[in-house]
Nucleic acid binder design. Sequence first.
DNA 1: TCAAAAGTGTTATCATTACACCCATGG
DNA 2: CCATGGGTGTAATGATAACACTTTTGA
Lengths: 238, 238
Amino acid sequence: MPYTYEYPRPALTVDCVIFGLDESQELKVLLIQRDQEPFAGKWALPGGFVEMDEPLEQAALRELEEETGMREVFIEQLYTFGAPERDPRGRVVSVAYYALVNLSAHPVQAASDARKVAWYGLNELPRLGFDHRQILQAAVDRLRAKVRYQPIGFELLPEQFTLSQLQRLYETILGVEELNKRNFRTRILKMGVLEEVGKQEGVAHRPAKLYRFNKEKYEQLAREKYDDLLRRGLDFDI
Amino acid sequence: MPYTYEYPRPALTVDCVIFGLDESQELKVLLIQRDQEPFAGKWALPGGFVEMDEPLEQAALRELEEETGMREVFIEQLYTFGAPERDPRGRVVSVAYYALVNLSAHPVQAASDARKVAWYGLNELPRLGFDHRQILQAAVDRLRAKVRYQPIGFELLPEQFTLSQLQRLYETILGVEELNKRNFRTRILKMGVLEEVGKQEGVAHRPAKLYRFNKEKYEQLAREKYDDLLRRGLDFDI
DNA sequence: TCAAAAGTGTTATCATTACACCCATGG
DNA sequence: CCATGGGTGTAATGATAACACTTTTGA
């Protein structure tokens, strides 16, 4: 059942960069091994063609669920990649998304079609097909930049977490040796978006307080601060 | 000469949000009046279909030049809009770009095909076709956010400018009453990316010093500061 | 000599950094 | 009672905000 148009059209796909934190607090990305040409046998980002009546974000969520079984995850459009030679099959434009998933809440299940799926650390990536290496790099850059001024890091953690976990998360994402413990804590608590919800149990050291990210409070504060931000003007941050 | 595919494909377009500063330091956006259905007679963002062998950014630059005659302007991908119903002709996915142009260096010339082209202030926008109002809003939001931490504002100013011009630019973009003069100056000069290049002449008040943005210096500083930024960790900025 | 806009001095307050120290738990 | 993280006190430094003042020009 062929489809005919007066002018040629690129094919349109979505690709997903899915970030997760494993048990040892390493930042990982989900890759699948391709079973078809082009790049059969190579690893690539999960993705696929956009359906004709499907919003882009929904296509990304669909691919994500097909590959991993995960639902209700944080997802955001990253960038659209459209270099004419990026796919050997012809002109294919891909809208890339990135997702942050909480691995403890979303254990990976094998993809429905039994393709190989695996989590890779950012320092042990295999060679990727297409321009997926570049897409992944863009996602890492975005995550690093964004985590500094928006509380998206919490999407990677379990509902309840300790400040040390949170600090390790930031160190991991930023790819940095170590942040000063005292200052990290002062700062993040001063923001007033964390809520104490209990204590660790059964650990062989002083039990840490457990916190929860209070999204409502964050959004309220963000609204209040918005005017201030504008009035204060530029930062440049260089 | 029809083109046939095994599966249906959305059409792919680019749309451009072109910002400029007029003589009186107002932030304006370039719109064209459509001469064809859909939305004939309505105003819309300049844009058009992506050619089969053309990179996306090049398509945006081509549209920009076709509509305005401008070349070598700052342009950046904004977001890709793909709601199934955004175009009444069928599924059309649009990659939106925004551009910053220096109006004194780039006077608007009539579009080649004699369509009406006009600059509109953000507070006097006409009704726009498609979802272009939404695209424009996304561009304004991005510009406001970005101008605070990257020196893209200079793209809107002439090569040489006074600190008062620069301050008015920031006030305009941020849509804010007035920034404190003393503090604005201290801050922006302390960054060390402006270079004195002369003085105003023939004005009926104390002549202002003229400055130039030193891009090389900015990039050097940005590189140096990058590590610091990472080490310092999060800002959250709420 | 006046209007208009450019440009500067200063201070109180707040945020950031850096370092050293104490605390609670299980083994 | 020790190893292991969790958690805190504090002081020096630097950034920010706020306000009022002086300077230079053309008309």
